[in-house]
């Protein structure tokens, strides 16, 4: 069973729809007992970091997620959900994240760029991974975000995208996976990534 964590932010129906379409058995919940039984935990998210982490705390989900990460359960963060996996975010202040991966979430320098980074951008391969075995440097995915991951731990980064800076797009460390873009909105390429994810976690 795959759980999509419903922590009260953003539109998570689209992620549910995309996974269900691929034949995955998905439950949307914030029930801790359910989450503890999951094979994979999807952390979606649209909105502000402060509200998101605030809600995770409010629903008592921080320890639950950390415990499951340690146990080896797949944790998949999408968009803001990926940012939550990290140590800290500087979105409208300074907020601690889940700290499952090393790095900080910082704002794009908007002096030369339009922010949010919104639209289709090309993926640039940094290393091989099962999750992305059939992806190439000619594939485009759909991004919508104003903050991005800055990290010294380059090993975790599978694909980047270029927008003024190198933007980590797909990251993975063992059982922890993050995607900064929206695979559920990335057409055929997004479907490919989610299908690989399914192979990996089911």
């Amino acid at each position: 069973m795959i759980v999509i964590v419903d922590y009260g932010v953003g539109n998570i129906r689209n992620v549910e729809r995309a996974l269900t379409k691929l034949g995955m058995e998905v439950i949307v919940t914030r029930d801790i007992e359910m989450i503890d039984q999951a094979k994979a935990i999807i952390l979606p998210g649209v909105g502000a970091f402060r509200d998101a982490i605030g809600n995770l705390i409010k629903y008592d989900l921080v320890d639950c997620l950390k415990r499951n990460a340690e146990k080896g359960t797949w944790i998949v963060g999408i968009c803001l959900g990926m940012q939550l996996l990290y140590d800290k975010s500087y979105e409208d202040g300074e907020y601690e994240g889940l700290g499952l991966l090393r790095g900080e979430i910082v704002k794009f320098d908007d002096s030369d760029l339009k922010v949010p980074h919104m639209g289709w951008n090309r993926l640039i391969k940094q290393r091989e991974d099962e999750l992305t075995q059939d992806l190439t440097d000619q594939d485009y995915v759909y991004f919508v975000h104003s903050y991005y991951l800055k990290s010294d731990d380059k090993e975790q980064i599978i694909f980047t995208s270029s927008y003024g800076v190198d933007v980590p797009a797909i990251v993975r460390k063992d059982n922890i996976i993050g995607m900064q873009f929206h695979p559920e909105k990335s057409g055929a390429v997004g479907v490919k990534i989610l299908r690989n994810l399914k192979e990996l976690i089911v």
Binding site: H117, M118, G119, R122, Y140, F143, Y163
Partner: peptide, 8 residues
Amino acid sequence: MLTKRIIP
């Protein structure tokens, strides 16, 4: 870079 978008 970001692509230009075509929107019907």
